[in-house]
Design a protein around this nucleic acid. Structure first.
Lengths: 135, 135
DNA sequence: ATATATGCAAAGACTTTGCTATCGA
DNA sequence: TCGATAGCAAAGTCTTTGCATATAT
């Protein structure tokens, strides 16, 4: 799992991934830090940030970049979408299919959420940057 | 436009809205500050932040909360979706319909973007917070 | 052996806030 | 008039980074 790209399998990384996969709460770096600290009392927050970044670049975990101030992380690599609470900020998984089919209902099946808004974001490379890459 | 909710129509607010409506670049608070400063050299960045927040809560402008580190703002109140460049961070409007119909093409018509990823986010009120509101 | 990773603390980026003077309605 | 707002600067929050030491391979 780590030996691609000369990544070293340190206890910090191993436990970060284990805990993130176990959690289904899409934690922030700091939340995960609090959890991991129970097993590695001396781990530093800097290490958590550094590794979450590296691990998500490597594709071992996913970085969730959506609304809300803080960055969150997800150990679930399956493609899926999210629903976020405006009040408390928690993020849940959107049941497959719900994203499209339940657009006109106030409640999303299986989540109990009352939906206020839906957002779509495409991510890609803009014309200028594509030009830069081919040159 | 401002007299709802005892909002005062200060020159700062008027010009912020004017400039934001004129720009189509989905600027960050700081970018808009730079622009507005040409007309109001003494405006402070704090005022920009404060007003962008107030104006978006009031519905006069929109706050864009998507991926990318910084918060961005949009003077266009029509419901529409965005496409963001992974390389330079710019955000463009997604042509209506493109979001759904062109999912399998690499290039989104009319934008020139090469699409890498699509994200859907629902925003709402989670079961716990809904409970709290009715009690 | 040695390049990579850690812990720590300092620095950075972005945003919010407290305070006093000012200004719009 | 007088409560809302501006400007300013300080503080806050989240994240990144430099550096010396430790460690995985």
């Amino acid at each position: 799992m780590f030996n691609e790209k000369q990544l070293r399998m340190t206890p910090q990384r191993k436990i970060l991934v284990e805990e993130l996969r176990r959690l289904h709460s899409h934690p922030t770096a700091d939340e995960l830090y609090q959890v991991v600290r129970r097993r590695l009392p001396h781990i530093s927050l800097g290490t958590v940030y550094r590794n979450l970044e590296i691990l998500s670049r490597t594709g071992i975990i996913r970085k969730i970049e959506l609304g809300g101030a803080q960055r969150r992380f997800d150990g679930d690599l399956e493609i899926h979408q999210h629903i976020r609470c405006t009040e408390c900020g928690r993020i849940d998984d959107l049941p497959a299919g719900a994203a499209i089919t339940n657009c006109d209902q106030d409640l999303v099946e299986g989540t109990g959420y009352e939906v206020v808004e839906r957002r779509v974001e495409f991510i890609g490379i803009c014309p200028e940057c594509r030009k830069g890459k081919t040159e």
